[in-house]
């Protein structure tokens, strides 16, 4: 469903992606792991067209990114941002129903609110949260609202950018379980970037390890622990010694 072929991206002299090749099957949950600053977020933003890649091809369902109707392309995606990226000026329900209140997916206001409340319930939030503002919510609640917004328009593809960063282990577990459940019940294709190994084990069908701008290893999550790739082995066991330099 999503194919990255020899994708390169540099910022000035800093080559972040140096030939990324990756395939994500329809309906699967791919988790990309790698250290901080290895280009995971850049790869994700290149797929969405938020950042323009320098060379190579990014193909979604047979069409190159940026070649067709951009609105139609983006309407297929939902995304949970690292810091939730909720709009401060809007109440929670309008954040969740943002896409349903404008553009080609526009619905009547009452119906959009009903859907928003239902999606909030799906992520474990009570209806009274709907009228609060993002600044009134805890970090975990904001992540849930972000998740509700990502799934509000029933997207085919959902991206999760560091979904558990900044959360306590219990809340991280709750978010991981929610993501797994929602992706499974919606039948969506998911791509998550994280360096939290508990997220990887909870969410992934397949795992790809990004290091030095290229995919060092990719395979099913069940084979991750038995892989003989030294980069992956060092990363999943959190060892300071190995081919990945601790100080980058």
């Amino acid at each position: 469903m999503i194919d990255l072929r020899d994708v390169h991206k540099s910022f000035g002299t800093n080559a972040v992606l140096r030939g990324v090749d990756l395939s994500i099957r329809k309906g699967s949950s791919m988790v990309i792991i790698g250290g901080s600053g290895t280009g995971k977020s850049v790869a994700l933003k290149c797929i969405l067209g938020l950042i323009q890649h320098d060379s190579g091809a990014i193909i979604v369902d047979g069409s190159e990114v940026g070649s067709g109707d951009r609105d139609a392309f983006l309407a297929r995606f939902g995304m949970l941002f690292q810091g939730a990226a909720l709009f401060d000026s809007l109440p929670v329900w309008q954040n969740v129903a943002f896409r349903l209140l404008r553009g080609r997916l526009k619905r009547p206001r009452a119906e959009a609110r009903e859907i928003a409340v239902e999606k909030l319930r799906r992520v474990g939030l009570k209806p009274d949260v709907a009228d609060r503002f993002p600044a009134e919510l805890s970090g975990g609640m904001q992540k849930r609202v972000g998740l509700a917004r990502a799934i509000a328009a029933d997207p085919e593809i959902i991206f999760f950018d560091e979904p558990t960063t900044g959360l306590d282990p219990i809340m991280a577990g709750v978010i991981n379980d929610l993501i797994r459940e929602i992706v499974t019940e919606m039948g969506a294709t998911a791509m998550t970037i994280t360096h939290d190994m508990s997220s990887v084990r909870a969410i992934a069908d397949e795992v790809a390890m990004l290091h030095d701008g290229v995919i060092k290893w990719t395979g099913p999550v069940t084979q991750m622990d038995t892989s003989d790739d030294p980069h992956l082995d060092q990363f999943i066991h959190g060892r300071a010694d190995g081919p990945i330099e601790a100080v980058r």
Binding site: K45, L74, G83, A85, F98, G103
Partner: peptide, 16 residues
């Protein structure tokens, strides 16, 4: 502030 907190990126992903 919207830019540094990725709210601008969020707008784009929400087709706005």
């Amino acid at each position: 502030t919207m830019k540094v907190t990725e709210q601008i990126d969020a707008l784009v992903t929400l087709s706005t």
